[in-house]
Design a protein around this nucleic acid. Structure first.
Lengths: 151, 151
DNA sequence: GCCTTTTTTTGAATGATTCAAATGAAAGTC
DNA sequence: GACTTTCATTTGAATCATTCAAAAAAAGGC
């Protein structure tokens, strides 16, 4: 994810090109499935004055334009990912909130359609596999361990 | 959902039988996909002294025992449903949070398995169809309407 | 009925996310 | 390149679903 890529993405979406926005996009390039807080920390390495509020604003705008996608891992903070060539799903750890991509089971979009739409106008089918990641499996068998941070 | 049913469910799960717990189960019988707040309101009709905190406690216990299931409709409050014969999915309105059941696309559990588990021990595959319900379609076309309450 | 364990209550705290007003920067125009 | 308008960012505070904690009350086994 180079500077030019981020700029082009923003231009293509009709969004103004600003340093914080480019920085957030670049951060997501290196941190797939990052929370607003994690993105803020990453962005702060290059731009220490960018506020967490700005990161929230940027993520709202990027998501509204379809450049990023929000993932809600249960009761953990929302995670964001660059919406690259779609059609993948997520493995989510119910304990620590870690997220891993998995290829689409079917292989083409839309990979699923409901048997009845009940009048809904649908725009996405989301498949989430809930489970326990390797780290948390180990932690659960051991006596009560703290929940690990997820990178 | 009769009193006896609720009692049996609790006994079967090894949970103590209390008025608030029976009331929550009965409320869920009449209100599928209800939020803690909505359940509290329903329960209060019969038992006005049951606190919202108690409803949260009960829902935590019921969900922990597998009697109910939590659904997280994006940025809306968590909804709960009685876990009846499984294998159905959800249509969720991104605007108002309304939830409708849809039959499983595949028809038998587990209806999906990921192509790779990445070491995760999985316990559930969740399929969510995101869209706009009938009411919200109408509201969006009309000039900015308030978000409707969902029953 | 008594005793222990589990629930409920009450009241306050938490924390991710959002709102609002004021300042600052981007992009189009002359 | 400066001007103007529009949009983004900052700062600080507010929201609200959900959880924590301590004390009082009820459930179930003996």
């Amino acid at each position: 994810m180079t500077l030019t890529d981020a700029t082009d993405l923003l231009r293509g979406a009709g969004l103004r090109v600003t340093e914080p926005r480019r920085a957030v996009i670049e951060a997501l390039g290196g941190l797939p499935h990052a929370s607003a807080d994690a993105i803020h920390a990453k962005v702060a390495q290059a731009l220490p004055d960018v506020s967490l509020q700005t990161v929230y604003n940027v993520l709202r705008d990027l998501t509204g334009s379809g450049l990023t996608r929000a993932i809600e891992p249960g009761d953990h903070p929302v995670r964001y990912e660059l919406r690259v060539g779609d059609n993948h799903h997520h493995l989510v750890c119910t304990r620590c909130g870690a997220i891993v991509d998995v290829d689409c089971v079917v292989g083409h979009a839309p990979c699923l359609t409901p048997s009845e739409s009940h009048g809904f106008v649908l725009d996405e089918a989301e498949v989430t596999f809930w489970g326990l990641c390797l780290e948390c499996q180990a932690a659960v068998t051991t006596a009560s361990d703290p929940v690990p941070a997820h990178p």
